[in-house]
Each structure stands twice: as C-alpha cells, then as structure tokens.
Computed example of a mutant assay.
Amino acid sequence: MQVLHNRISNEELKARLFAETERRVTISLYKYFTITDPRAFRDEVYVKFSQLHVFGRIYIAHEGINAQISVPESNFESFRETLYKLSPELNGLRLNIAIDDDGKSFWVLRCKVRSKIVADGITDPDFDPSKVGKYLKADEVNEMIGRDDTVFVDMRNHYEYEVGHFENALEVPSDTFREQLPMAAKMLKDKKDKNIVMYCTGGIRCEKASAYLRYNGFQKVFHVEGGVIEYVRKAKEQNLPLKFIGKNFVFDERLGERITDDVISQCHQCGKPCDNHTNCNNDGCHLLFIQCDECKNKFDGCCSNTCKDEFHLPAEEQRVRRAGRENGTMIFNKSRNNPLLSKVNAVSEETAT
C-alpha cells in the first residue's frame, strides 16, 4: 500500500534536511489548466515526487497546479521529466529557479487539494483565467518601466511590497488577493488608455489579475513573465539593469531574496533601515514583522516586551495563556490592519518606562 501522506515529525524532518550534504534547488511553478480529478492527480503527484525526495508545498485544484518546492540537484532532470509527463499541459512548463538560495527552504512534501490554486473570490462562471494579458520578458519590462503611458501594478501583499518593488510601482493596499482584484480595477478605472503592467512573486497572481482586468474591459494589459523571480534571473543573465529594488519576499524559510543592495524599509521596532522579516518567537503571536539584528537580540526575536515576557514563561503557562487564541485569526496575521501591530508601535513607549 502506497503512503500518501507524511508520517514523520517536523523535528526529525528538519534534522534530516540539515544533515543533507547535497545541494537542493528551490523552484516555484504554476499552470492554469483543467484537472478533471484533482484528488487522483494529487495522489499521483505525491507518490512520484516523494520518490525523487521533493520537499515543499503543492496545491492542486480543478483550475490547475501551484507549487513551491526544493529538489536534490542530482534529481533535477528526473523531476523535470516526471513533471512534464504528468499532463500534456505541463510539458515544457517554465520553472522559476530561486535566486538567493541555500537549499534549506523546505523539509517536507505537503500536497493538498483546494477549491482554487489562488483564492480570488470570483464566482462568475463566465470568467476564464486562461484569457490573460501579454507576457513581458525582462528586456521588455525595462523598456516599459518609467514611461508616461504605462502603469506598473504590484499584485502582492503589503509586507512584500514594503521591502522591495519595481520602481514607482502602484501598491494595491489590501490584505488578500480576493480583495485586491476589485480594488485594482477600481483604482485603475481612469487609466484604461494606458498600458497596465501587473507583477507578483512568481507570476501566478498577476497572471490571473491580468485576466480579471481584461474581463473588466481593460485592453492594454501585460504581466511580467514568471514574476519577479524570472525577471531578475533573466535580467542578470542578460546583464540588464535591475529595475526591481530591495528584496523579493518569498514564502519559505528564507522569507526573502536579496535583489539589490537598496534597503527601502525600516525596523518596525526602532525605525532603523532594515528589510529582514521575522516571525515573533512567542507561540501565542507569531506576528510577521521587520526586525533588525539589534532589536532581535534585545527582544529575543519577539515583537514586544509583552511577547518577550510570555516567551520566557514555562511552557505549560504559555499554553494556558494562549488557550483559545492559538488557532485564532491573530496567529501569523500579516494584515496591515492587524491589531497585533499596535504592540509593535507601542514598543518605544514600553522601552521608555
């Protein structure tokens, strides 16, 4: 009987990962195409990728596949061949290779079936996510950026935009992609005569966003092929000037890839230039925020003195304190309106007393 789920503890899996001596390649990929039986497709993917020691997150839905994974370097070609044979739609699929990568991005393979590979809130059956805008390659991005007839639109979340973005890109200030889509259309309604260039981390969100704008009557819609990851890779290969400044936030243990030396954000605790994201060490919080090394040492990786004090309590007392809120909306909440941010903003007051 084939095993279709992981049965080993995270602690052991992490230990195995860091004991590995072979380099791993971190990859992101996606494809919008119709999958008739997502559950059967998921099981096939899990079995075949497990055999190749693939780690990471894979989401499968009727509308396609979305994955962020790592592959042992010696298995890379076998992985690519296996992927391409899963479906004719996946044959020749572009793989986004991580830029700043130590190979320790994932330690287990998680493969899940979801209603959509990107939650978009769209219920209109006439919407077709495959009717996308025009792809832009790296040199075309550089040619269009800064033009008066062109608007670059960042379809990532605020914590991603905060540490890095294309020059003069428009931020859509919402907390989720499903909120961003109608908000972007509203913000751009008086710019239908301009070129609209959308981008995101690896291409999956901006591709759907471009289809959404086209569905809402926009004609001159483009999106950066492969997102920031592919743009940077191609720009470096072709010795093009980088028009993306700062860091590119990524959804794995690294929490960011350095693109340029520019630091465009500040430590949320002391205000010094900093673009290092961290998760508050307090298990009753885990707020994602920006923290410099000095503040990390001062607050033991926590977002406030309150969390620092709770972090140092005996484990049982910590569990009692966070009972009822450990799995609530406060945990790992990255919203710009997250009430936990009030703790970050209050740190200066705490340290002054």
Rank of each mutant, 00 (worst) to 15 (best):
E20K: 12
K14T: 09
P339G: 05
E89V: 13
Y161W: 12
S50E: 05
A235K: 03
K247S: 10
E326T: 09
P273G: 01
G103M: 06
L255N: 05
N282P: 07
D283E: 09
D261Y: 12
G226E: 02
M155Y: 02
F299Q: 05
R233G: 10
L340K: 14
T34E: 14
Y215P: 02
Q68F: 07
A61N: 07
M187A: 07
I290S: 08
L213Q: 02
K247P: 06
I60N: 02
A323K: 15
Y84N: 13
K243S: 15
K137Q: 14
E22G: 07
L13D: 07
K308W: 01
D37E: 11
M198F: 12
R321T: 08
F76Y: 15
K208F: 02
A352M: 13
L170G: 04
L90K: 06
A138H: 10
K272T: 10
I145R: 04
M330D: 13
C200V: 04
T123E: 06
E160Q: 04
E81D: 13
F76N: 05
A346F: 15
R233S: 13
Q68A: 10
L288T: 10
K272H: 08
L52F: 09
V320F: 10
P241N: 08
L287G: 01
D309Q: 13
G103T: 08
L287M: 08
I196Q: 04
E253F: 13
F106Q: 06
D175Q: 11
E316V: 13
K343L: 15
K189L: 07
D300L: 05
A211M: 00
K134Y: 09
L52C: 08
V151M: 00
F289R: 01
I60C: 02
N216I: 02
K296Y: 09
M144Q: 14
I331N: 15
I65D: 00
M330W: 14
A138E: 09
I331C: 14
R319H: 11
V250R: 01
E171T: 08
G121Q: 05
R336W: 10
S115M: 09
W107T: 06
G133Q: 03
F332W: 12
G217Q: 06
V228N: 12
N216Q: 08
D300Y: 01
E326W: 05
A352E: 14
R258M: 10
M198K: 07
V25G: 12
R178T: 01
F76R: 05
Y231D: 04
G203W: 00
L340W: 13
P129C: 01
M198S: 05
K134S: 09
D149Q: 03
D124I: 00
L213R: 03
R39C: 07
E11W: 08
R39E: 12
